[in-house]
Computed example of a mutant assay.
Amino acid sequence: MKKHFLFFAFFLTTRLIFAQSSTEFLGETITFKSDDGITITADLYMDHPSDAPFIVLYHQAGYSRGEYREIAPKLNALGFNCMAVDQRSGDQVNNIINETHKEAVTKNKPTEYLDAIPDVEASYLYVKYSIKPRKIILWGSSYSAALMFYMGSEHHQNLSGILSFAPGDYFQVNGKDLSSYAAKVTCPVFVTSAKSEYANWKPIYDKVKSDKSSFLPETEGKHGSKALWKNNSNHMAYWTAVEKFLQKIK
């Protein structure tokens, strides 16, 4: 009887611990609302006190919060809490379905890149007002990497850093090129990508006036945050550059 009770108590803890894909998930899946009523699903990785520096992780096109199942625990180990967000523009990766996208489709909401801005905004505000860390860092992959410059312009007084994995001038926001938003960013910025993608982001990067750094691998590398996955042969070179940047703004 005692054994059954202990198991039941463990099962009811707020931290969900179970195996997903090839990586064990050691976070908590949460939900909150976007401004237009869509429920946003996110994985919260809180290994430190709530005031510890916090990284909000956004996925690339066609993906889900599963892009960060391997990455987030390593960020925890570096001293950061973090949250991987399902944006409505996406689908699935690593056997993790994008629940925000799923609900948006059910409610006949559009799911193009720019349609994800309310989800990006809502997740940032959730962290700012519900978790209240002393520092907030935004991290984007591919299309969401581009949106980080818009976010950096809109919330420049409240951000401690931006990491942008393979951004590009994929679209305009409110009729403006992303480079115009990049010029208004005041926090430190880190940009990286596959080697062949450098030309995609150089015009945006050149407009950044704040402290900035970048990394390109010696070999081709990978597109987006999956450059940090261990199945990428040069993932450690990417990690070294990321850690160097994060330690400066921690």
Rank of each mutant, 00 (worst) to 15 (best):
F7Y: 08
F11C: 11
T13R: 02
T14H: 07
T23E: 14
T23Y: 13
E24V: 14
E24R: 11
L26Q: 10
E28L: 00
I30W: 03
F32Y: 15
S34T: 08
D35K: 14
G37H: 05
I38S: 05
L44R: 03
M46C: 01
M46A: 02
M46K: 10
D47Q: 11
F54D: 02
G62E: 10
G62H: 06
R65D: 10
G66N: 03
I71C: 02
A72V: 05
F80N: 11
D86Y: 02
R88P: 09
G90L: 05
Q92W: 14
N95H: 08
I96E: 09
I96Y: 03
E99H: 05
E99S: 11
T100K: 02
E103N: 05
V105R: 08
T106S: 09
T106F: 06
N108G: 03
Y113N: 07
A116K: 04
V120G: 01
V120R: 00
S123C: 09
L125I: 07
K128P: 02
K132A: 12
W139Y: 14
G140W: 02
S142V: 11
A146L: 03
M148P: 01
F149L: 09
H156L: 06
L159H: 06
L163E: 00
S164K: 00
Q172M: 11
V173W: 04
G175T: 10
D177I: 04
T186K: 14
T186L: 11
C187L: 04
Y198K: 13
W201V: 02
K209Q: 15
D211H: 13
S213F: 04
F215T: 03
L216T: 11
T219E: 12
K222N: 09
G224C: 08
S225R: 01
A227G: 07
W229P: 04
W229L: 15
K230R: 13
A241L: 01
E243K: 15
